[in-house]
Nucleic acid binder design. Structure first.
Length: 316
DNA sequence: TAGGCCATCTGGTCCT
DNA sequence: AGGACCAGATGGCCTA
């Protein structure tokens, strides 16, 4: 029993060294592992520093690979290795989240306070690329209803409302954007005034009202996406310039190259047939199909557009 | 209170 | 051997 306590002692030390972020659950699982170790190996914990495997003549032989005895030295190495691995994993996930944050910043709407969830960020990014490709290939108007529909497809209703709200804030918010562009990218001063957005044409957003100075409104000006200097301008305050390819995986003939990958998510929520012709969805919905096919994500696009179309926030 | 989202730990697998 | 990556498990926080 004293061995058990000493073993738990170093685990406590290891656990407490991790920025106080550990929870009872992790402790429990570690304890589970540890207690199983202790049952099998606690007779070798005391005092032994060598790692030679010893045959225990008393115990019945077990099949399978021999378990190495958990000496103090081995346990210490295990602990160090585990702590380092945890730190690396944390760092890796932070890097992933930073990348996701950078992605949020170049989305059509960006809010510091109302951050899109990870999955919604990815969905909106997918839609954004898709919508912009439509602008390029077919000259689709960025101020049209179709553009809004493309942006919102497959998004949850709160996110759809947020996007729709961003796109209908009207010309007065373009002034805000210029400040916001600087402020949220470079952490300079925020505009002193506040414009509270109340969606005129939509049901009340589940997120409540939105303070416009927290929104990064990025109207779908295609220039800002294809012009590398603009991309760097957008990103260079927080991250090194992106040196990779600046264009999405788009074939010149008009379709995304990753059809299947995208479809697995797409076909759960709406028809994507016109852009992913290889996907057999069985229906006849074009990309103009509304969300009625998926009741949960049904959004009043028409209502959004009603007010949206009265503004010309994308005109230059 | 249930469900969504998130951060973290963990063990397994693959690669260098 | 060690690091990167991944997926499962777990618990906290928040909101409807």
């Amino acid at each position: 029993m004293s061995e058990m306590i000493s073993v738990h002692g170093w685990m406590e030390e290891a656990l407490s060294s991790q920025d106080e972020m550990n929870e009872a659950g992790q402790r429990e699982s570690t304890y589970d592992m540890l207690s199983s170790m202790s049952h099998e190996e606690n007779d070798s914990i005391d005092g032994e520093e060598d790692e030679e495997e010893e045959e225990d003549g008393e115990k019945p032989k077990k099949r399978g690979p021999k378990k190495k005895k958990m000496t103090k030295a081995r346990m210490e190495r295990f602990r160090v290795r585990r702590v380092k691995a945890n730190a690396r994993e944390r760092s890796r996930m932070h890097g992933l989240n930073d990348a996701l944050d950078n992605l949020r910043r170049v989305m059509p709407c960006y809010s510091k306070t109302q951050k899109l969830s990870k999955i919604e960020t990815l969905r909106l990014a997918r839609n954004y690329i898709w919508a912009l490709s439509e602008v390029l290939e077919r000259g689709q108007a960025t101020e049209g209803k179709g553009f809004l529909e493309m942006l919102c497809k497959g998004l949850s209703q709160p996110t759809s409302n947020l996007v729709a709200g961003c796109l209908q804030l009207g010309p007065q918010t373009m002034f805000l954007e210029k400040h916001e562009e600087k402020s949220h990218m470079c952490e300079s001063t925020l505009p002193s005034h506040t414009y509270t957005y109340q969606s005129p044409g939509l049901p009340s957003p589940p997120y409540g009202s939105i303070e416009a100075h927290h929104l990064h409104l990025k109207p779908p000006s295609f220039k800002s996406v294809v012009d590398p200097s603009m991309v760097n301008h957008t990103l260079n305050c927080t991250t090194p310039p992106y040196e990779g390819a600046l264009t999405p995986p788009l074939s010149i003939t008009g379709n995304f190259t990753l059809k299947q990958d995208v479809s697995s998510d797409m076909d759960k929520s709406y028809a994507f047939r016109s852009h992913y012709p290889s996907i057999g969805l069985g229906g006849t919905h074009g990309h103009g199909a509304h969300f009625q096919t998926v009741p949960r994500y049904e959004i009043p696009i028409d209502m959004a557009y009603e007010s949206y179309q009265h503004h010309t926030i994308f005109s230059e």
